[in-house]
Design a protein around this nucleic acid. Sequence first.
DNA 1: GTCTATAAGTGGATAGAC
DNA 2: GTCTATCCACTTATAGAC
Lengths: 202, 202
Amino acid sequence: MSTRRGPGRPPGAPAARREQLIEVTIELVGDQGYPAATLGRIAEAAGLSKASVLHHVPTVAELLAAAYEQVLASLVAEVGAAVEVAAVTDRPGVYVIAMIGYFRDHPRHTRVASEALVHLGRPGQSQERWEPLARLLEQARTARGLPPAADLRTAALAIGGAIDAIVREQQTDPDYDSTDAAEQLAAAVTTTLLSPPASRPR
Amino acid sequence: MSTRRGPGRPPGAPAARREQLIEVTIELVGDQGYPAATLGRIAEAAGLSKASVLHHVPTVAELLAAAYEQVLASLVAEVGAAVEVAAVTDRPGVYVIAMIGYFRDHPRHTRVASEALVHLGRPGQSQERWEPLARLLEQARTARGLPPAADLRTAALAIGGAIDAIVREQQTDPDYDSTDAAEQLAAAVTTTLLSPPASRPR
DNA sequence: GTCTATAAGTGGATAGAC
DNA sequence: GTCTATCCACTTATAGAC
């Protein structure tokens, strides 16, 4: 909406180039890892010259960050929606299943997300990862009339790490059924952290 | 043993140069990540020229691999020793505590090991990671008279991922006490997978 | 064994014409 | 907006003198 497009341009919209660049970047990183997401390769994949790419994006690092952000936003939207419609007591399990399911259905996003920490080096965003799950665990416990748990941070971290490992295995070995694994992990989370009998904090 | 050393060499031994290079590589990677482990920086850290470094080591990639192997060997030796002296039924828990304890005590090794998968790209060694733990779980179960569990691979993967997450958190936030976390995780593993009451496989 | 010098390549980014 | 041409920083590795 706004700027008239030049004469005889292909189907593509005017400023949609940035989105296109983000898309090809996600494909490159998802298929071949971050080292493959080089300016030259991005340009080639987009059908542009290197200079043209840098006309639409300030720097390669910024483009990589934008691609990661988009993947993250998509993940959060989908998992968030699944969690919202579930009963409070079921949410931790739903979170586990939704997370693993998302990456099963979006193999490219898997690599973009899992290698982002190492290659994009964003220290200190660990809390953003475990806190939402810790909150779900806390709410599920109170909804079941259980006392507040001792160390929800460790519990959430451990569950998050378990999710990552299962997702990674699915990526490595396509024969591995992460759907089954997701349900087993979800069941273990529920019975271990939300069981009424012996209120053993994790 | 063998080759006489040249005249007036410093304290260092003859072929110990390779070990020295591995050492400085571990330090570089451990402190600043794999991208910092460049030929130039390794040479500088070792007090040699780049050409001299390549006189003792065939290639930079080989040196990086050797550094990783050394870290891995050290980890396996220490954890293996701890597991061996424990009772069979305690071994899964001991494994968890020993793994987390090792990385708490060797911060540099943490980064070398955790970023190796991404930067050294050794696909398919996933099995080497989860199989030993799966075996410990199996043996502990039979020692307790429990039936064979359904999916020990997923269980071992999940526990391994949880360990990684706790180790990473310790590295990110020094205030986080991974020792407490290790004991909680070990306890959860024992009660979830080795409990006699309801034999619920994970 | 160690060095200097150099080759040969890859990366990101800019200049300036069209 | 898009291009070609260029620059610069950096990397690995080799050649050959000492």
